[in-house]
Amino acid sequence: MLEKYPIENILFLDIETVPEAASFSDLDEIKQELFAHKTAYQRKEDITAEAFYDRAGIWAEFGKIICISVGYFTYKNGDRQFRTTSFFGEEKKLLLDFANLLNTHFNSPQQLLCGHNAKEFDFPFIARRMVINDIAVPIKLDLIGKKPWEVPHLDTMELWKFGDYKHFTSLKLLTNILNIPSPKDDIDGSQVYEIYYKEKDLDRIIIYCEKDVVATAQVFLRLKRLDLLDEKEILSV
């Protein structure tokens, strides 16, 4: 199934997002009204838009990216390595740095991007935030006019579906059933908002994001029936 995708041609990635402001009251009245309208169908009748605001990070129109972590396979003296690195901090700068990575080091036709549920979330979120920040969208994220077989994206959740469109499987569940060390040994996505705005601990979020990248790569290895990474093969740079 995946024989035609050499692991060294794949850039694995994950993003962490938060609401664009620390609290609903920090938004202007127009943005508050737009958020209330956008989330009307997601909220129960007794939940206000303000009470729902901690989830605003799942929408590119109301959230922002605080970390993009990537990982790639390389070979040094014949030994396999999986190198991870992260772009973090001010959103426009991290997006520019990530775009530069794609444009200069990951722009050949055979190279692909891969994430977990990334076709639904990470890839479009990054592209939308680039447009909002007036950044040219790299060719690897610009899907306009592309045929399905021309899209340079892989998604471990989609690969696990085997064509079942209704089947959502979290990365935590998938690592569990495939006997892969869980990346969720400290925090999970629902805690990122509080850790970022209240605890102001971005370093903790970066570590969490890089662990998800490693876990996604491990799932891909299992799907290809290759040996999992061990700790000495993983290098954060």
Rank of each mutant, 00 (worst) to 15 (best):
S23D: 14
D122M: 07
N103T: 11
I65H: 03
F106R: 07
L102M: 06
D227W: 02
I58R: 09
G78P: 06
Y75N: 14
K172I: 05
W160N: 13
K198N: 14
I65C: 06
K166E: 12
G145R: 12
D134N: 13
L226F: 04
V131G: 07
L141N: 05
L154Y: 02
E194M: 03
D79H: 15
L141T: 10
D164F: 00
L228E: 01
D97N: 12
H37E: 12
S190A: 12
G71K: 00
N179E: 14
K184S: 00
A127C: 03
Q32C: 06
G89F: 10
D134Q: 12
A99E: 02
A36Y: 04
G89P: 00
Q191K: 15
E194P: 01
K31G: 01
W59I: 09
K92I: 01
F73P: 06
C67S: 14
I187D: 00
F73I: 09
E90H: 09
G145Y: 00
V237D: 09
L235S: 13
A118M: 03
L113C: 04
D155H: 08
L34H: 05
E29H: 10
L178H: 06
T84Q: 02
E231M: 11
C67K: 05
I205T: 06
E16A: 06
I15Y: 03
S170F: 04
N179W: 10
Q111V: 00
K119Q: 14
S86Q: 04
G163Q: 10
N100S: 15
R55A: 05
E150P: 07
E16T: 02
Q111D: 05
L113H: 08
D134E: 13
Y72E: 15
Q81F: 12
N100H: 13
G115H: 01
L235V: 14
T85A: 11
T104K: 13
G89A: 07
E29W: 07
I144P: 04
D122N: 08
V18I: 12
E231G: 08
K119H: 10
I180T: 01
G63L: 09
R204A: 03
S170R: 12
D28P: 06
F162D: 09
F88L: 08
K38V: 05
K172Y: 03
D155Y: 02
L11K: 07
L112Q: 15
L202V: 04
E20Y: 00
P6Q: 07
D28N: 15
L11R: 04
P148K: 06
I30S: 08
T175W: 00
F98N: 09
Y208C: 01
E158N: 08
D142E: 14
L171I: 03
V137K: 08
M130I: 02
A40D: 13
L34I: 07
I177R: 07
I132D: 06
I144G: 03
A21S: 15
Q218M: 09
N100V: 09
N77M: 10
E8F: 05
K119A: 01
L159Y: 01
K198S: 08
F24Y: 14
F121V: 07
K76W: 09
L27F: 06
E90N: 11
E3V: 06
L2W: 13
F24Q: 05
L223H: 01
L143Y: 08
T17N: 01
Y5M: 05
F162G: 08
N100L: 13
F87W: 06
L27D: 00
I7N: 02
Q110W: 11
H37S: 15
L94H: 04
D142V: 08
I207E: 13
